[in-house]
Write a protein that binds this DNA or RNA. Sequence first.
DNA 1: GTCTATATTTCGATAGAC
DNA 2: GTCTATCGAAATATAGAC
Lengths: 189, 189
Amino acid sequence: MRERILDTALEVFNEHGYDKASLREIAERLGVTKAALYYHFERKEDILLQLHLRLHALGRQALDRLKDLDDPRDGLAAWPGLIDHLIDEITNNRDLFLLHQRNHNAFEQLQDTEHHRADHDDLEERMERLLTDPTIPLAQRVRMACSIGAVMGTLMRGSEIFGDVPATEVAELLRDAVHDLMGTAAARP
Amino acid sequence: MRERILDTALEVFNEHGYDKASLREIAERLGVTKAALYYHFERKEDILLQLHLRLHALGRQALDRLKDLDDPRDGLAAWPGLIDHLIDEITNNRDLFLLHQRNHNAFEQLQDTEHHRADHDDLEERMERLLTDPTIPLAQRVRMACSIGAVMGTLMRGSEIFGDVPATEVAELLRDAVHDLMGTAAARP
DNA sequence: GTCTATATTTCGATAGAC
DNA sequence: GTCTATCGAAATATAGAC
């Protein structure tokens, strides 16, 4: 039941935005009442938190692979694999990524109240640490940020723009584009 | 005074998100009361609408330039100029773009209630029309979407990641990156 | 144009029965 | 685990004086 609530909440949150989405509507879609939700989650915020953890789990393994490299600069070699992974994950979990992107403020305020800051080692912070790593040339870091933005920006609104094109075809073109984007970076100082 | 309200509202909206931002806080920062705001704007929604129009004005001229081309495929030649323009506009109006990106749902619900759909010819719709234009090869359209995502994604979180780097330097690297991204696209079928 | 009230609504959250 | 009923808070919005 917890999972059913989370699935439905994800739907409603994406339709109205987290703030304007009401627990009443979530409950109604599940055929129960508001109070029933409070048996499974203490606060509305906790529902969002669990969805955040879903998202976090998706990225953890990918970033762990990068982290285990001895030399952070080897990250460049691992980058294409990371991007491929990202493309797959966004394609398979677009709702989750959409929620995160379009409710940025809600997720930010989540971290303020978050009690378990110690263990959860936020996904975005790790990405930020990577993009600010001074041992990586600035030009490359900019291109890393570009590639992430390109993948996100293209796939997020994917269904509206490239909705009539097979997802695998878009993914392929996307990989090509990012390849060109990162490829020439190594040739520069 | 209207402009002062809009400026302050933009600040508060970006700090707490549109939904959680209260008119009380906006009024307090201006040293007036809530009721005073209602003399200048009929509803909270109208404040957001005016900020939307500010954003819309920024993009209109750029897209108009593209629109006036006889052959839509000439858009490819004009694309680098459009991207340069976009980079400048985001750099000079980051708060406005941030508001739009991080409160997507609020802006969506804005259009539902919007009375003046006729004239306002939404910026996003025009961009979407361009990216779905079937006379442009799919590979190029994907790269157009990529370049927009790259610019947005990099500059939006710019102050947090590349905050210690001069904006002009980031912009320069960004232009290079987008150039490589679009450059090789022409060489493909 | 700005103020002091106050009306109205909606939502998150709780208490206690079943 | 789910229900009915209700509380309390907060926000948008309005009425009318100055």
